[in-house]
Computed example of a mutant assay.
Amino acid sequence: MSEVDFMSVLHKSTNRDYLGRVNDPIYPKEKAAELAKRWGFDYWDGDRRICYGGYQYIEGRWEKVARQMSSYFKLPKHPKILDIGCGKGYLLYDWLKVIPDAEVHGLDISSYAIEHAKEEVKDNIKLGNATKLPWKDNYFDLVISINTLHCLYSYELEKALKEIERVGNNYKYICVESYRNEKEKANLLYWQLTCEAFHTPKEWLWWFENTGYTGDHSFIYFE
């Protein structure tokens, strides 16, 4: 199990006004979070102060992440790849640019996201929760989950990590939000809208070890 960073290139490209999110006069933090946790229009395509503010496909954005992963993981021919918390399936679609003969699958809790997913991969996305994955043991060559597992409560997180280990035959990768000091902790609390698992890197490693998760990981920090 190693720490490997595929996500900083995207995460650090966003400028954040932490106090502005908390004190917004129309969508203060608690109101924005309540709307975001419905995982519907407001979360994906509503006001930017609630979440994405219009989550559209951007050519090349996720392709560079897929290419980094493809270079890092020694995947077989015709690999089976699962993205847990895939949203509208943009990373799935870009995987097919990198490995055209891959078998890609996605899972998301948002029926709205699936309804508005990239048409080319929409039929490959299932509605569901990471705590119960509808695939057989050791089915996938690579299982990834980016910015999703920190949205689970502790009693769900244990199940999800064990499920990822169960369906993943070889490679797994998880990226979650975390903090290393009080400044990053405060920024995370101010900025996040759907996070339920607030853990330091050491605590996340405890979760991985105690659930038998053997894959790789990385952390996102709000510096």
Rank of each mutant, 00 (worst) to 15 (best):
L188T: 07
Y112P: 03
R38F: 04
M1C: 06
I84D: 03
L75P: 02
V176N: 00
Y90E: 00
L82M: 11
S154T: 09
N124I: 09
E209M: 14
T211L: 03
V4F: 09
L91Q: 02
L205M: 14
T14M: 04
A102V: 02
Y221G: 01
K202L: 09
C51V: 06
K12C: 08
F140G: 01
S8Y: 11
N124D: 10
L35D: 03
W135D: 05
D94T: 02
Y221N: 04
L152G: 00
Y18E: 08
E63W: 00
D5S: 05
S111C: 15
E156H: 12
Y43F: 05
H116R: 15
D5I: 07
L188M: 15
G128E: 01
K12D: 13
K159F: 09
H116N: 12
I99E: 04
G20K: 05
G215P: 03
R16A: 12
L142W: 13
L35P: 05
K159H: 11
E156G: 05
V22P: 02
L10Y: 07
A186Y: 08
I50P: 00
Y155W: 15
K185T: 05
T148R: 01
R166F: 04
L133D: 03
T200I: 10
W204S: 15
L189E: 06
D137I: 14
P25T: 10
C175R: 02
S2K: 06
G85E: 06
K97F: 15
Q56F: 10
K136V: 12
F208L: 13
F41V: 14
Q68R: 15
